[in-house]
Computed example of a mutant assay.
Amino acid sequence: MKTPLGIIEGYFGRPWSWTERADLVALLARHGYGFYLYAPKADPFLRRRWDEPYPAEEAAQLRQFARHCRIHGVRFGIGLSPFEVYRDFNAAARQALTEKLAFFDSLGIDDLAILFDDMRGDTPDLAARQLEILDWIRGRSGASRLIVCPTYYSDDPVLDRVFGERPAHYLETLGDALPDSVDLFWTGEEVCSREISAGHLARVESLLKRKPLLWDNYPVNDGPRMSGHLHLRAFTGRNAAIGEHLAGHAINPALQPMLSAIPALTLAASYRQGNGYAYMEAFRKAAREVAGEELAVRLEQDLMALQDIGLDQLGEREERLRRHYGDVDHAVAREIIAWLDGTYRISGEAVQTQ
């Protein structure tokens, strides 16, 4: 069975333009990407100000982008983070949620994701409260697929340190109570997993009572540390055999949309080629398609500086990178120069407040 591939625009930091989103959808659709979830952390009307209506101009842009996805045969969805609404799901919250769901339906969304991540979770009856909200939403949304991101979406103990210790049997309770038609996001053994194995996913499938929908945090580079690196290498540590244990595989892209397309194309290649997949060969082919022959060669030469050494340690290498890309009229080159200029830097404050 073919593994559904998708994009989750779920990063912190500087949001993409609508043109950048449209270009990425058009490119990835040709390589089998079938769904796009709009959920940037910088959109306040999906997070901190979720209970406020969208301004008219932004609503029109969302509507136009939804049409663009449909034209390219890509399911369009939205990820809503009703921030800590489970602490007081009162009449005002229900009314605001009713109005927001109606707006989403007016866009013709295919997928609705309710995202309970990035908020406190150390509440004993957390699962029961979230299940109440999800049951209420299911009866009021016209989306054909409902996706849920649990507050604890990985085995990674960093979630317990940041958001409080996870309640006992939290995931089992969600998995037992949610209908089979509802998908659950999972990032793997870590928030940013180096490897995702079939054995791990089989255990998670048993825990959640369904195949997880993988939220793959590569090539995302948000955060104060990661924003100093460009994640360009091809996907590794994800053998095509994991597809048997997944409801779908969605990647959280980098802050640089066109550069994100390079690893995204290699993921599609890894599923297509199976055991024949070779990651550097896949990188070269993807880089040529996205950036052209000359830039692809330069990107391979500069991989270590861009991805491993990073912005803070470039030293004299920065001058070479500016020579390589500064005079090239291409989106890939412009993104690298903007990265060198610090345009994509993310502060700890941005992560805390978006």
Score class of each variant (00 low, 15 high):
9 E>D: 13
12 F>S: 01
29 A>M: 01
31 H>T: 06
35 F>P: 08
35 F>L: 13
37 L>P: 00
48 R>P: 09
66 A>Y: 04
82 P>T: 02
84 E>P: 15
84 E>K: 14
89 F>H: 07
91 A>P: 09
92 A>G: 14
93 A>I: 08
94 R>S: 05
97 L>C: 08
98 T>F: 10
101 L>W: 00
102 A>K: 10
112 L>P: 02
114 I>M: 00
115 L>W: 05
116 F>W: 01
116 F>E: 01
117 D>I: 02
118 D>M: 04
120 R>K: 15
126 L>Y: 01
132 E>A: 12
136 W>Q: 06
139 G>P: 07
148 V>D: 04
149 C>P: 04
152 Y>K: 04
152 Y>G: 00
154 S>T: 11
163 F>Y: 01
166 R>Q: 09
166 R>E: 07
183 D>H: 10
183 D>Q: 09
185 F>Q: 02
195 E>Q: 10
198 A>P: 10
205 E>S: 12
210 R>H: 09
210 R>I: 05
222 D>Y: 04
225 R>Q: 14
230 L>V: 14
232 L>H: 03
234 A>I: 13
242 I>C: 12
245 H>K: 15
246 L>V: 06
250 A>M: 10
256 Q>H: 15
262 I>Y: 01
278 A>G: 12
287 A>N: 06
288 R>A: 15
291 A>N: 02
305 A>C: 06
310 G>K: 04
319 E>R: 15
322 R>P: 02
324 H>T: 15
325 Y>V: 00
328 V>I: 12
332 V>E: 03
344 Y>T: 08
345 R>T: 08
346 I>Y: 03
